[in-house]
Simulated scan of single mutants.
Amino acid sequence: MRLLVFGQSGQVATELARRLPAGVSAVFLGRDRADLMDPAACAAQIQGCDAVINAAAWTAVDAAEAEEAAAKVVNGQAPTAMAERCAALGLPFLHLSTDYVFDGSGLRAFQPQDPTGPLGAYGRSKLVGEIGVRDSGARHLILRTSWVVSAHGANFVKTMLRLGASRESLNVVADQIGGPTPAAAIADALLVAAKAMADGAAGGTHHFAGAPDRSWADFAREIMAQAGLACRIEDIPTSAYPTPARRPANSRLDCTGFTEAFGIRRPDWRAGLTEILRELNA
């Protein structure tokens, strides 16, 4: 199987490159070859492959508040153009999305068919991409995930390790709940789904996030414990840590449909964290 992957240095793209199974080859397109601010040029790159994965995105949540138009090009128009090209060529298109397309209300896990209602520009830009992919006519997989972490790139684990090594305590938000998701697990899930879809499987909109659901504060405590750091984590409400973009309080995602469709269960993020720390220590 030959894959074309948009993205090269991001967390998921990096793991995809590292985890390609035997019999699978991939071409990775970084910004130098595929500028997502030029959707038509990105779409023109799609050829000579069996499936396309879009692992590239505007992920600067707060910056999107001031640059929503640009975020909508990268997260909305670019994947739409990619999907339309895939539809014309009869190729499956796999696209990563986010829990931020929901409003974060309630306590139950969001199901894929639940009404969307983004709280900010980033979520709105990702929703534009979802709609465009669905309307493209391509056989597609939209995979919503949350709280992505790995040993590379900028993410919560690395921030906590850096701060925890030099401070006695840290204030961390305790009223936002979700499932931390190792980028390695997302990459594995995409590779399984890409193979299945290249062989004719249906796609759709699905959720994939780590288990069990926890608060950011609880996640931080586990990071300190596994890393052997004495830094105390103090619970604070979201209101005590204002940011330009509103964060959803409830980022729980119901992933049962993805398990049923592709046989992939929610990964235990605690085991994933152990692997991340092992790699960082190495």
Results as ranks from 00 to 15, higher is better:
residue 192 V to C: 08
residue 12 V to N: 04
residue 235 D to L: 02
residue 235 D to M: 02
residue 150 S to L: 04
residue 200 G to C: 10
residue 59 T to A: 14
residue 212 P to K: 03
residue 16 L to W: 08
residue 184 A to T: 12
residue 242 P to M: 12
residue 235 D to N: 12
residue 245 A to P: 08
residue 272 G to N: 02
residue 82 M to D: 02
residue 235 D to H: 06
residue 27 V to G: 12
residue 60 A to W: 06
residue 281 N to C: 07
residue 130 E to A: 01
residue 256 T to C: 10
residue 100 Y to C: 10
residue 275 E to L: 13
residue 210 G to F: 00
residue 66 A to M: 01
residue 162 R to N: 11
residue 50 D to P: 13
residue 265 R to V: 12
residue 93 F to V: 12
residue 126 K to M: 03
residue 94 L to G: 09
residue 220 A to H: 01
residue 133 V to Y: 07
residue 238 T to E: 06
residue 169 S to N: 09
residue 138 A to F: 01
residue 65 E to S: 05
residue 39 P to F: 12
residue 169 S to E: 15
residue 95 H to G: 02
residue 194 A to C: 13
residue 238 T to Q: 14
residue 205 T to N: 14
residue 105 S to L: 10
residue 28 F to D: 11
residue 205 T to Y: 04
residue 140 H to M: 05
residue 136 S to W: 07
residue 63 A to W: 02
residue 226 Q to S: 08
residue 31 R to T: 11
residue 278 R to E: 15
residue 105 S to G: 14
residue 115 P to W: 12
residue 19 R to T: 13
residue 130 E to V: 07
residue 45 Q to I: 02
residue 145 T to N: 00
residue 19 R to I: 06
residue 17 A to S: 15
residue 211 A to Q: 10
residue 277 L to W: 04
residue 3 L to V: 15
residue 221 R to H: 02
residue 193 A to Q: 10
residue 232 R to Y: 00
residue 20 L to T: 11
residue 270 R to I: 08
residue 71 A to R: 09
residue 77 Q to S: 14
residue 200 G to Q: 07
residue 89 L to C: 01
residue 185 A to D: 12
residue 11 Q to G: 02
residue 19 R to S: 15
residue 80 T to R: 13
residue 235 D to P: 09
residue 183 A to R: 02
residue 238 T to H: 09
residue 255 C to A: 13
residue 29 L to E: 08
residue 252 R to L: 03
residue 210 G to H: 01
residue 17 A to V: 10
residue 181 T to C: 10
residue 147 W to G: 00
residue 220 A to K: 00
residue 32 D to M: 01
residue 42 C to S: 11
residue 34 A to F: 06
residue 123 G to M: 13
residue 186 I to C: 07
residue 271 A to T: 15
residue 181 T to K: 02
residue 54 N to G: 11
residue 54 N to W: 12
residue 265 R to P: 00
residue 170 L to S: 08
residue 254 D to E: 14
residue 153 G to T: 05
residue 49 C to I: 11
residue 30 G to D: 12
residue 148 V to R: 00
residue 173 V to W: 01
residue 101 V to C: 07
residue 217 A to C: 03
residue 27 V to K: 11
residue 169 S to A: 15
residue 156 F to T: 00
residue 17 A to T: 07
